[in-house]
Computed example of a mutant assay.
Amino acid sequence: MTTEVTQVTFEELSALMKKAAGVTVDPRDLESRADVPFGEFGLDSLGLLGIVGELENRHGRALPTDAERCKSPRAFLDLVNGTLTTGA
């Protein structure tokens, strides 16, 4: 069974932050401040770990361990989307 790989967007990341960590951030704010550390949005390392786990479940593959160490939304999305695109 093949699944179409789509890019994780700022909107999806915002929804995952709410679901996995209870942190509400407007996706437009997340995108406009994409290089700001996650901590400034109220997301800690455990929350990011929850997001990584959710994405792994959704896409049926492990993400690099570096994903949970990303400091900003842009760094996280670049790593995740690069992994999903290449299948690495």
Rank of each mutant, 00 (worst) to 15 (best):
G60S: 06
K19R: 13
E68Y: 04
K19A: 10
L48I: 01
E11Q: 06
R28D: 12
S45F: 00
S72T: 15
E12D: 09
K19N: 08
P37T: 01
K18Q: 11
L43A: 12
V25K: 10
L16V: 06
R28G: 07
V80K: 12
D29T: 15
R69S: 13
T83P: 03
S72R: 02
D44A: 04
A88Q: 06
L13T: 09
L16H: 12
G60W: 03
K18F: 12
A67W: 02
E11M: 04
A75Q: 11
L30N: 08
T3C: 06
D66S: 13
G87D: 10
G60V: 11
L77Q: 06
N81A: 01
D26Q: 05
T65C: 03
L30Q: 11
L46Y: 13
V8S: 03
R74N: 07
V36N: 06
P37W: 06
T83F: 01
D29L: 14
E31K: 15
R33N: 15
N81L: 05
R74I: 00
L13W: 12
S45A: 11
T9P: 14
T83D: 09
R28H: 05
P73S: 13
N81C: 05
A21D: 05
G42H: 03
R69L: 11
L63T: 06
R74Q: 15
S45T: 05
A34D: 13
P27V: 09
D35W: 09
Q7W: 10
P27N: 02
G53W: 07
S14R: 07
A15Y: 05
T83Y: 01
T85Y: 07
A62E: 09
N81Y: 11
M1A: 10
A15E: 15
D66W: 00
G82D: 01
E11K: 08
L77I: 00
L43N: 11
T2H: 13
V80M: 03
E11A: 13
T83I: 05
L30T: 05
H59N: 10
H59R: 00
G47R: 03
V8Q: 09
D78R: 09
R28S: 14
R74A: 14
I51D: 03
T9L: 08
A34F: 12
T2N: 13
T2L: 08
L30A: 06
H59I: 11
E56C: 03
T83Q: 02
E31T: 01
T86M: 04
S14I: 05
